[in-house]
Write a protein that binds this DNA or RNA. Structure first.
Lengths: 148, 148
DNA sequence: GCAAATTATTTAGTACACTAACTAATCTCG
DNA sequence: CGAGATTAGTTAGTGTACTAAATAATTTGC
């Protein structure tokens, strides 16, 4: 006797619903904080990856962000148009592109330091809560990307 | 002495990163499960809303899904093209559209009952874990959408 | 009772995000 | 060495998702 047939199909009980809405609304909350840097949220994530490891190939960027190269490609072109990034063919393997920060792109890191604390205030989260949520998200990612 | 300046700017510590990746990968995990219904994930969420309350205006759909009406509008047009939904001007207020399930749209609900259990298996989550995650996401949504 | 403000929806324009198909460079191995 | 397979990146096409502007209907208030 399963009385949950209908409950399971209600919008509020769908994890996918809460998850996608949380993702959208949190990204929206980033917008005013990122606006002074002139970056969208996906562009900000690319810059974070490059601030960590300076020359990266397109493939490496896409791997770090768990994105298709086809998604990253136009994103990098826009960052290049903005002058934060430079793309040059790799000397060893001419198929690969070295994606490299420009002086402006590197300088932007200093302005970006204000972003995480501003967002923690905005979302009213402590560093510990962020870590707990992060762990939960990584578990979800692991389960969702595991081959069945 | 703040030694967290750089840690905070590393990709792994960004909640926004884990959250957006979790959202994308979970939506991707839905794809094969929704494929037999012929629905994308956003379209599935619209159908969930309509299975709950049958005639809804465009505004009501967008409010339930926390979406801009401009996002919902083309989505509903596609669902109408597929024959799951019918849009007719409201008799009382000709500005509003009644979005109504067709017989096919209503019938689809039976096939959709298989979706939540299939996803819980795929994500290896119990009903209790889903509820805990749901709560955490709703807290995030609340904080992110609160005016500062 | 009608002009001005408001409300519901759509359209236009930009930016992701994915799949599939394409180009070009490199590797493999007979 | 050289044909076929593989790999890196881009392009094309579809579907969200947002803001801003346009359209059309309704409500308000003098």
């Amino acid at each position: 006797m399963d009385s949950n047939a209908d409950t399971d199909l209600s919008l509020e009980n769908q994890l996918c619903f809460a998850l996608t809405v949380a993702s959208r609304t949190v990204v929206q909350a980033y917008r005013p904080v990122l606006e002074p840097l002139g970056l969208t949220h996906p562009q900000y994530l690319v810059m974070l990856a490059l601030w960590d490891h300076n020359p990266l190939s397109v493939k490496e960027v896409s791997a770090q962000l768990l994105h298709e190269p086809a998604t990253i490609s136009p994103l990098l072109r826009r960052l290049e148009d903005m002058g934060y990034v430079r793309r040059t063919p790799n000397a060893q393997d001419a198929r690969a592109l070295d994606v490299e920060l420009t002086a402006e792109g590197l300088a932007l890191k200093e302005k970006a330091r204000a972003v995480p604390p501003a967002m923690m205030r905005r979302l009213k989260l402590t560093r510990e809560e962020v870590m707990v949520l992060n762990k939960a998200m990584h578990n979800l990612i692991e389960a969702a990307t595991a081959e069945d």
